[in-house]
């Protein structure tokens, strides 16, 4: 202990304290603070980049999921659209068929009516002609009656036969 005390040099202690305290202060300002700040900054930037990447990955995943959902929806939509279209088509065909049937029926009815009319007209014509012929026959009968009764009857019969309807 005595040796330690005798070895102790106050001058060295003084210089050491002075230089060391100055060194701490100088290094704090010019070295440690900038170094630790830079390292911290680097660490936070790395951390930020990592979390950013994580976020981007999550986002990508959610977008992908969304895409899948949209695709699925689109597919379903297409399916229903197709189904609807098919149904509409069938309906349209049925409608058309019905319409055509109705038209055809109408046309047929008209045709029948026309035929009826024609027939009526023809019957009337015939009637007129029969009347004409009857008149002519009557004329001829009257003419012949005057000659022979038998003959007259024969003739009437023959004429009637000819004029059978």
């Amino acid at each position: 202990m005595e040796k330690l005390i005798s070895e102790f040099s106050f001058g060295l202690f003084f210089w050491q304290s002075l230089i060391f305290i100055f060194l701490v202060l100088l290094l704090k300002k010019f070295a440690w603070k900038p170094i630790l700040d830079a390292v911290n900054q680097r660490e936070t930037s790395i951390k930020d980049a990592m979390s950013e990447a994580e976020k981007a990955r999550d986002e990508m995943a959610s977008i992908e999921e969304n895409n899948q959902k949209v695709l699925k929806e689109a597919r379903a939509e297409r399916e229903t659209l197709l189904k609807e279209a098919r149904a509409t088509g069938a309906e349209m065909v049925a409608q058309a068929k019905a319409d055509a049937q109705a038209e055809a029926d109408k046309i047929i009815a008209q045709a029948q009516e026309a035929i009826q009319n024609e027939k009526r007209a023809a019957v009337n014509e015939l009637k007129n002609q029969v009347a004409q012929i009857s008149l002519e026959i009557a004329e001829k009968v009257i003419d012949t009656e005057l000659d022979n009764k038998d003959k007259q009857a024969k003739l009437v019969g023959k004429l009637l036969k000819d004029a059978s309807l």
Binding site: G11, L12, W15, Q16, I19, F20, F22, L23, L26, L27, F30, A31, W32, P34, I35, A38
Partner: peptide, 19 residues
């Protein structure tokens, strides 16, 4: 003391360089 001054100088230049 001379060595302490030298070391202080060395440290100052070294770590200011790093900064």
């Amino acid at each position: 003391v001379a060595t302490i001054i030298f070391t202080a100088l060395l440290m100052f230049l070294l770590f200011r360089g790093l900064a």
